[in-house]
Write a protein that binds this DNA or RNA. Structure first.
Lengths: 222, 222
DNA sequence: CGGGATCCGTTACGATACTG
DNA sequence: CAGTATCGTAACGGATCCCG
């Protein structure tokens, strides 16, 4: 890599932007927060970022110690965040809260996968109190599975299938976003299947805290 | 303005980046968080951003409702954040915490003013408990004045002179950053002048909370 | 002098094609 | 599948000029 543009300022904000301020970089981090991903997974989730750009960004993220190659098993290589890279989750979360205020463009392109949803949920879940909750939920958004595992006061959200879930929650992407941005939820916008009695209530409690946090941006009011 | 690049994604993170993801934009917001600024103030604080870029960015920020022109008095026009623009402070703060972990470049360029310092302090101050504190402090960093006004549980930090301060705290920019990033403070790195007896202790309490927050990124431990 | 607009060379981006 | 190579286009960066 030739040395890229840098602000060369002492300011910590500029130092951060030198690492993650390039176009696409924060969206790549967003998708990586959903769990390890292959090159092609990332390319799909980012709606057709040019392959050379994705390659460049992954090299830079690796050089800066935010991401690394890992063995995904079966001979495939995956990329995943390092401990340093994980620390961008708070930035990503604040961006999500801020961005939710704006109306989407007219001509939306739909992404090839919904890693983005898992990341937004993960970021929000880390900020709400789940101390009295415990369940495994499969969240099915437009047919794609997101695994929510709540236990011991910690929430783990990953873009992956959830084996043996307590509840299965199905919803469309547009409905989910709308609800988390303040639109009223109605029974026809989602379906909830309970496999372990009582866990549905816990799940709904969790979801209501998440959506309130995303709407208000402030854990204190959630 | 011709329509600029846009991710055109439904994802709230992408919607945020469509507004503030362009190069320089977040640094402009950073400087605006320190208070209303003239075109030239911004140009100085950003170490010589090209004038056309700054003009473009200000137009876009205005169109998107994040900033607006205002009358700075004496016939000068200034730019300031709107209520919507103010909401980027959490993003800027998370960037500062994240960026503080990285060593600065070898060949640093020094900015024409230290608005950046006021913003970082402002963002951090908003997250620490100041309920039992109350003072007006003039913070002099490399000769530039930052006003800290703490009262009624709220902290207001602005890049401006502070008339009649309770304490005057002087320090160099590099020292201030170093201390807030974990280096030990020593008496020779700063000077503290007390004009209202007792307020120096309050000020030092405040500063220790701020630096701990910036170092750890977590208010709970501060 | 502050607040830009214009011009132009350089760099980064984006789309497509191609390769191990 | 996981990238590399090429190339046209758009954005950036520096300089200069303009206007009140």
């Amino acid at each position: 890599m030739a040395k890229p543009r840098s602000y060369k300022l002492l300011c910590p904000i500029a130092r951060a932007l030198d690492r993650i301020g390039d176009r696409w970089t924060l969206l790549i981090l967003r998708d990586l927060h959903a769990g390890p991903a292959r090159f092609t997974d990332l390319q799909k989730g980012l709606t057709g970022i040019a392959a050379n750009l994705l390659a460049d960004r992954l090299v830079k993220l690796t050089e800066d110690g935010l991401a690394e190659k890992s063995d995904g098993g079966h001979g495939v290589t995956t990329y995943r965040l390092t401990a340093l890279g994980e620390r961008t989750l708070d930035i990503v979360f604040e961006l999500a809260v801020f961005g939710a205020q704006f109306a989407p463009e007219e001509d939306i392109v739909t992404p090839g996968n919904l890693r983005t949803v898992a990341t937004t949920l993960r970021a929000a879940a880390r900020r709400v109190d789940v101390s009295e909750l415990g369940f495994d939920a499969a969240m099915v958004v437009d047919g794609e599975q997101i695994r929510l595992r709540i236990r011991d006061g910690k929430a783990d959200v990953t873009y992956a299938a959830c084996p043996d879930p307590d509840v299965v929650f199905s919803i469309g992407y547009a409905d989910l976003l709308g609800i988390s941005e303040g639109e009223p939820d109605t029974p026809d916008r989602h379906s909830l299947e309970t496999r372990t009695p009582g866990k549905d209530t816990e799940f709904l409690t969790f979801m209501s805290r998440i959506t309130r946090l995303l709407r208000d941006g402030d854990p204190a009011t959630a």
